[in-house]
Design a binder for these strands. Structure first.
Lengths: 209, 209
DNA sequence: GTCTATAGCGGGATAGAC
DNA sequence: GTCTATCCCGCTATAGAC
């Protein structure tokens, strides 16, 4: 890797870190310059504007987070097994990529000010997560025939994750509580009359209402 | 009300609106001045600094939101009735006070930059919400004897609400989905062996695991 | 690709008349 | 309490040597 590419990476690393901590507007080019040791003009040479950095940071966070997420085709013989696998990997990704989600949330908030390209990238990021969640949930609960149920449960899961990400910026040691989430998802599946096979401890699915 | 107080209110209204939309850092004094029609120096006369505005805006949002929330002592003969009441009022408050939560979230994010007073006010705001949630959930499910269960369910509820608030800034028409939340909370209660009385459609509570 | 230097503007904040 | 005018600084962005 040549020096240019290494510099580019260094800038993106620092910028991503600072923006996740302070937000986009509160992060200045000179902060980034000081923190990564490269002059302001180099930053402008690599990315044409502050918005350019924003877009590149988002794109990189998205790629990294999606690569770290478990595959949407969750392996496992029955629902209980697949659900446990899914939740464990979700928790792991949440733990190992604190910046990924916070960048999306923090930067997603300032959509009103951002450029068209940046807004597009934020939506791209968010849509990728939504798709992934829907496919994963659908795979875990075998919901190929019930897309609306899959949608509802995916939304539910993602909102829980976002909410926990929010809680984490008040209390950094916050973890994703997979226990209650597991109970809730099984409850939702049962409520919709989805067959849960031998899932222990949740009783038989009652009639859907 | 004299003119001074009215001006103060007008400034706070505009500042709160702008800050909820753009975030703290991206909201400038001159933006506020232009939007509310009062000169910059009046703003500085009422609030000594930009941070002063921040604190006042947060304090006001907290007061307004807490006043709008249903009382923590939820009325109702049985769990199902109290839960329905609780969820309906929660949804209503969520719908009617979009700024309250977003201010807390958006401003809470920039804690690192903010003054001591502002950070204190953010935590105060957040703690008030946590307390309210815990007491409400405890009242709905009669959890006086099981504080840990109440804590878990309150955290769960709040995270769902925060997550939905996040979703709303991507898609403004987003509403709090009380249906799935209801199922999830009943499932959690059952999982902890909490007596749910005549709650319809959820089956008998299985043995706690 | 990286450096120094600087333009040009808008930010937060203040002075002092009224 | 509200106004006009202004200070000073840091911001985004560029120019041009190397």
């Amino acid at each position: 890797m040549d020096r240019g590419a290494r510099s580019r990476d260094a800038i993106l690393d620092t910028a991503g870190d600072l923006m996740a901590r302070h937000g986009f507007a509160a992060t200045s080019i000179s902060m980034i310059s000081t923190a990564c040791g490269l002059p302001v003009s180099s930053i402008y040479w690599h990315f044409r504007s502050k918005d350019g950095i924003y877009v590149a940071v988002l794109e990189r966070a998205r790629t990294a987070l999606l690569a770290a997420l478990p595959p949407a085709e969750v392996p496992g013989a029955d629902v209980a097994q697949r659900l446990d696998t899914f939740l464990a990997e979700l928790e792991g990704a949440f733990q190992r990529h604190p910046r990924g989600v916070k960048l999306l949330l923090g930067l997603g908030m300032v959509q009103q000010d951002a450029s068209t390209a940046a807004v597009a990238e934020v939506r791209h990021y968010r849509d990728a997560l939504v798709d992934w969640a829907r496919e994963s949930v659908s795979s875990v609960f075998a919901l190929g025939e019930r897309p609306q149920v899959a949608d509802e449960m995916a939304r539910f899961t993602l909102r829980m994750v976002s909410g926990t990400a929010v809680a984490r910026w008040f209390e950094p040691q916050t973890v994703l509580e997979t226990g209650p989430l597991r109970v809730a998802l099984l409850g939702l599946a049962a409520h919709h009359g989805v067959t849960v096979g031998g899932a222990p401890g949740e009783g038989a699915p009652p009639a859907a209402s």
